Amino acid sequence: MANFVLNAEAREVALQGKGSSRRLRNAAKVPAIIYGGTAEPVAITLELRELVKALENNAFFEEVIEVKVGDNVENVKIQALQRHPAKNTPMHADFKRA
C-alpha cells in the first residue's frame, strides 16, 4: 500500500500540446505522463493543490505512489518534475511505473 494517492484524469490526444498545457495550468491543473513497463504511456492531468500537498513530504520522491486514473490504479515513482523558474510551482510531472 502506497502512502501517497493522487487522483488523475486521462487526457485525450486533442488535449495535449503547448496550448492545452497552458490552459490546464491556468485552471490550477498540472499536465503529467505515466510511462514505462509494458503498457502504453498515458497522459494525465493532476490537481495542482493535491500535487503541492504531496510534494511537501520528502518521502514523495522515494516511495511508490498510487495514481488513480479513472477505474485503473497505477503504482508509479516520480521520475522528473519541472517547476516554474520564478514561482517554483510544478509545471509538469513524469511518473515511471514501478
Rank of each mutant, 00 (worst) to 15 (best):
M1A: 12
F4Q: 03
F4T: 08
L6C: 07
E9Y: 09
E9C: 07
R11H: 13
E12S: 15
V13Q: 13
A14S: 15
A14C: 07
S20W: 07
S21F: 07
R22G: 06
R22M: 06
R23P: 04
R25I: 00
R25H: 03
A28V: 00
A28K: 07
K29A: 05
K29D: 00
K29W: 01
V30D: 00
P31I: 05
A32E: 02
A32W: 03
I34H: 06
I34T: 03
I34L: 02
Y35N: 08
G36T: 03
G36L: 08
T38C: 02
A39T: 13
A39L: 12
E40Y: 06
V42A: 14
A43L: 04
A43G: 02
I44C: 09
I44G: 04
E50A: 14
V52N: 00
V52H: 01
V52Q: 06
A59E: 13
E63N: 14
E66S: 12
K68N: 08
V69D: 10
N72I: 06
V73M: 09
K77D: 01
K77T: 02
I78K: 01
A80I: 00
Q82R: 14
Q82H: 13
Q82V: 13
H84I: 05
A86D: 11
A86Y: 15
K87V: 14
H92P: 05
H92R: 13
A93F: 08
F95L: 10
R97K: 14
